[in-house]
Amino acid sequence: MFNYIVRRLLYSLAALLVVVTVTFLFMHIIPGGPFQREKALPEAIRKNIEARYKLDQPLHIQYIDYLSHLIRGDLGPSYKYRGMTVNDIIRERFPVSVELGTVAILLALFLGIPSGILAALHQSKFPDYLVMFFSTIGIAMPSFVIGTLLMYFLSYKWGLLPSATWGSPQHVIMPAIALAGLPTAYIARLTRSSMLEVLSQDYMKTAIAKGLPRRRILWVHGIKNAIIPVVTYLGPLVAGILTGSFVVENIFAVPGLGKHYVTSIYNRDYTVILGVTIFYCVLLIFMNLLVDLVYPLIDPRIKLAERKEQV
């Protein structure tokens, strides 16, 4: 168990190092460097700035320098926002994204799982068709389409909800729905098919043969088995919410990290792009590790050590 966690951590670190190196290279071998695009900077000033950000030094020196700061958790300064570090930006923006993301994840789970179960229990009947209809639409509708449609109808046309910015609970509703659309649909389908499979299993017959009431058969014998694939989906779910936030936060002008990330891409604020990417990677790798550790609690067949071979 302990060995396994250590191995997983080391492995995650290796993956992270590769990611850091590749993204660092991408950001630094861009011809002309990050300040080339600024309009008509006098040569001397440009040199000056480059020296400040150590861009005049050889690549490997910059890389080692970056890594040594990274180990201390320092992601460096922003090129665009003078006086702001990447850490400042994350500290300021990320809580907003967490708030939005959490609402979206909860929405996806609490809407997706029950509707999947409902559909499975009424296979080929009205509830099933209803759930399958909406989940199919959810899968085919990119978040920006859901988001813009919501915005057009709910705020422009009917004036029910504020169209942009952040602050009150009403502001969360539309972006959270837009963000949760695809994962909800996916979880509903996943739960449905896994529940259908479970319902046809022999042990469900045993449960009936024991004379258990329907409720107990479903909730204790069925759902605990059916939920296992959903747990495996938690990692990708967080990743999806995170990348989805790039678009949704932009549409609704939510001052989160996702919006800032996209702005940095527009502005070619390379240290921020690099830093935030690394931050996201750490976050996701950590989340995946967490899911892996939770997994054996739900499925006693999986011992931690075996889990990896299975993937």
Binding site: S12, A15, L16, T243, T277, C281
Partner: peptide, 12 residues
């Protein structure tokens, strides 16, 4: 696989 494809594609 350890980071989402979308991040790779964005970097690229």
């Amino acid at each position: 696989y350890s980071i989402p494809f979308l991040l790779w594609v964005i970097m690229m």
